[in-house]
Amino acid sequence: MGIDLTAEAASRHQAPTVRGPSEEPVVLTINGTHHTVGLEPRVSLLDALRDRLGLTGSKKGCDQGTCGACTVWVDGRRVLACLTLAIACEGRQVTTIEGLAADGEPHPMQRAFVEHDAFQCGYCTPGQIMSAIALIEEGNAETDEDIAEFMSGNICRCAAYPGIRQAIKDVRDARERP
């Protein structure tokens, strides 16, 4: 094993293109829709969504990876949009809170959050919901301890944590009961 630089170099097509630093067209796939948007490479996915695409559901709480309010899915995995460059998402599938509702029907997690009053000011809520759904998909919602631990990357300053956990358990249990 290991990297054979010579063999790899031989298969190389052409020198990679350097893009930026000024604005250029970037193709993003958000909630299944292609958008071509002029962006400098330094623009984060979060700022691209909020300032350029009008998708303000993803929130900016810290802009440094410490709060989770900007949680979105890239290629199906929950990540932080504030530490992701938008241009690096070309060719990847980005899903935001705005992409959850199917045919106008809210996602069960959205309904469960309402039912359990799992928010107050609502600012962390889209990130919580994106994490909460992913949590179940990951298989990290088996126990109360796991839910609390694997939801700890989403800070809720209003402290709706008990309600958030209850909403997740409801959705998990409803899925298990077909």
């Binding site: 998708l55 559901g57 809210p106 959205q110 959050f113 928010f119 609502g122 809520t125 889209p126 919901i129």
Partner: peptide, 9 residues
């Protein structure tokens, strides 16, 4: 305002 808050609206 719960719908607005859970949908990102």
């Amino acid at each position: 305002d719960s719908q607005a808050k859970v949908t990102g609206g």
